[in-house]
């Protein structure tokens, strides 16, 4: 039984341009699923649709999102918001902008526990201290009182990770959580997310464009192109040899650490044309179903 179950999800802009094309996707309890694709493939859109933070111009136009067997679209906006706040959390992309600059760090970790889940302030603060230690922050009591601008990017991402795990959510959506960091810090943060995920048994939807990262963290993988699921498979099968030509090309395009001087292999035009044709055929089929 999967914790998150997305079925035939369509998201479009107000002018009808599709952002997601009948996306179906499952994340089982405790599973780490990577969501990969090029920029603009719609991988972040899926997470945003689940969290209810789609940009104003984008709307869910079809399909369903089920959380623990409950269809989110049937809930009132308030109930939906609180359900998400209690069970799902986001590790954002850019730690430098994801903390409120005019508030101290501590309340930004405890606020969800106190305001949404009704914890006592002292309990929430004890929990925050515990979590900050868990993400290897020294002098957590001092960090709680600090303002975000007093901390480094790596520290801030650690705080955001601690904050994401605060309410023991069943699912965490990590939206390219290492992209904005230095390469050396990236590795530590990735390790930390993996470590926390395993300790807490949280399901993780890991959005990334970096296949190198995927191999280190995920058990299963969904490849997206132009808002359409191209391939869905487990990690071993994928790295052994993806079934879709686009996935194969994507894997071949990943730089190899074993061969740093090797030239990069871009995804060939023929593959792009083939996958574009597939999308066009899919859209034509959609038109047919709408007419029928």
């Amino acid at each position: 039984m999967s914790f998150l179950s997305i079925r035939d999800l369509n998201v479009s802009l107000a002018n009808g341009a599709p952002l997601l094309r009948r996306v179906s996707l499952d994340v089982a309890a405790g599973e780490v699923r990577a969501l990969v694709g090029e920029s603009g493939a719609g991988k972040s859109m899926i997470g945003k649709a689940v969290l209810g933070i789609l940009p104003r111009a984008a709307k869910v136009t079809g399909g369903s999102i089920q959380l623990d067997g409950e269809d989110l679209e049937t809930l009132s906006p308030k109930a939906r918001r609180q359900r998400i706040g209690a069970r799902v959390a986001l590790i954002p992309q850019d730690p430098l902008t994801a903390l409120n600059p005019s508030r101290r760090v501590g309340p930004q970790i405890t606020d969800r526990l106190v305001d949404i889940l009704g914890w006592k302030r002292a309990e929430a603060e004890a929990r925050a201290l515990e979590l900050l230690e868990e993400v290897h922050i020294q002098a957590p009591d001092r960090v709680m009182k600090a303002y975000p601008h007093e901390l480094s990017g790596g520290m801030r991402q650690r705080i955001l990770i601690a904050s994401a795990f605060a309410a023991e959510p069943k699912l965490i959506i990590a939206d390219e959580p290492t992209t904005a960091l230095d390469v050396t810090v990236q590795k530590q943060i990735l390790k930390l997310i993996r470590e926390m995920q395993q300790r807490h048994g949280t399901a993780l939807l890991f959005v990334t464009h970096d296949l190198g990262v995927v191999s280190k963290i995920a058990q299963s993988l969904t490849v997206l192109y132009a808002g359409k699921v191209i391939e869905e498979t487990d990690i071993k099968a994928f790295f052994a040899g993806p079934s879709h030509a686009y996935s194969r090309a994507l894997l071949a395009a990943t730089p190899k650490y074993t061969d740093p001087d090797g030239s990069l292999t871009p995804v060939p035009d023929s593959v792009i044309q083939a996958v574009e044709a597939e999308i066009a055929a899919f859209d034509a089929g959609q038109m047919g179903t709408v007419r029928a």
């Binding site: 969290l51 933070i53 998400i84 706040g85 954002p92 992309q93 994801a98 969800r112 955001l160």
Partner: peptide, 10 residues
């Protein structure tokens, strides 16, 4: 981004 994050908190 911190506004978006606050939204996900409920």
């Amino acid at each position: 981004d911190y506004i978006t994050l606050a939204r996900t908190k409920g």
